[in-house]
Each structure stands twice: as C-alpha cells, then as structure tokens.
Amino acid sequence: MGDRPVAFVTGSRTGLGRALAEDFLRRGYAVEGCSRSPAEWTADGYVHHEADVTDESAVTRLVLDIARRHDRLDVAVNNAGGASMNHMLLTPVATLDRLLATHVRGTFLVSRECAKVMQHRKSGRIVNISSVAVPLRLEGEAAYGTAKAAVEHLTRVMAREFAPFGITCNAVAPAPTDTALLRGVPPHKIEDILARLALHRMGRPEDVVHVVAFLTQPASACITGQVIYLGGA
C-alpha cells in the first residue's frame, strides 16, 4: 500500500471539480478524476478517466482500477452534475430524469463502490456537492433542487450506514458559483438568488475547496452526516 493518500473527484474536467482535484494535488494526494469527455488539463499525480457516473459497470471498473493501482482510497468527492433552470411547467421529464441520474444515481454508485474500497482500512471520507437551491427552495429549479435534496438525504443515510467502517459522509452546498454550470442562467436570476443569501456575493470555487479540505482532513473524523451551506442560505 502506498504512503500517498488517494482522492477521487468526479466531474473533474473543468470548473469546481478541477479546482478540487488541483487542491488535493497541492496537499500531496494522488488524484483520480473522471468526466464523460477528456480532461482539459494535466498534472503530475493526476489520472483522468472518461466515464459516466450513471453507468454502474463503468463506475465499478473505474473504482476497481483505482484500488488495484493504489491499494487504497482515502477520499471521494461526488461533484459531477449538471443544472437546469426552468419553470416546472416548461421542464421536460427528460430533464428531470437526466438530473436525477447524474446527481442521485451517480452519487449512489460512486459512493457505494468507493466505500467498498475504503472499508478495508476502516477509514474514508466521502463529500457530496449539493446546492443552496435546496434550503432556498428556488423557483425554477424544481428538477435540480429535487435531485440535490435527494443527494443530501443520501449523504445523511450513508453517514449512518458507513460509520461502522470508519467512513464519514458530508455535503457542501455552494452558493451560485462562477463556473460553467451557471452559463446560460440570466444575470437577474443569479442576482435574485444572491439577494436571498446572507452574503450577497457570487461564490468562488475556493470557497468550496476550503470546506472540502476541512472535511477530508484526519482531524475531521467526528464530522459526518452534515450539510454545510455556503453564503448563509
């Protein structure tokens, strides 16, 4: 077993996922990432996989590959996911299916397979990315908010089920953050959301990176089943 800790970040091709992967590298981790298409960046210690987190066989193969090469897995961050902003009356059911698949099915599969590896060392950290769309019950985000609400519930149940294996599960719920996810959202809609937060400013990837770093450090072994909302939601 290698001495270097290993982190797996989904949706690491761009944006927040990339920022998270780069921070783990800075902190001395070997980092494995994935997305459905090739990464737009490379770095020493980073391995990118092209995989769809909703594909059970692909996730199983990917996590087994990580376990075989590193013989350990310390951290998994479920970051992969898209968004959609539309009035529910105008939301195709295909959009709901797609968001539930990526956020809920993807988080379920990745967490399940990663926990199987983590339980060997009786230690592991799973962090899921949620959204302030859940506590704010944002209009126009019925599908996205529902998917993220399910992620939060899954986080809390996994925290209990994985606790005997020494694995913690928490979630971070960012405020609207300046990444590709927000492209296409009209500026006035973002302003409306920011107005409902205690802090009326756009989130930054480093806001999330900071909390993920806190939750994944060894001293945070007692923190599990929590959702940390950023921006004062």
């Binding site: 059970e56 066989s57 199983t60 087994l64 376990a67 075989r68 199987k116 339980q119």
Partner: peptide, 20 residues
C-alpha cells in the same frame, strides 16, 4: 455486508470477475 464486499473483491483480483 463486509463478507459480500470481500468476496466480490477476491473474485475480481484472483479471477478477473466483476460480479455484484
């Protein structure tokens, strides 16, 4: 639960079988 996970992983490492 631990046994099922362990057996799955042994099947994979020894026989290259990916079974759930």
């Amino acid at each position: 639960v631990t046994l099922v996970i362990d057996v799955e992983q042994r099947l994979n490492s020894r026989y290259a079988l990916t079974l759930r």
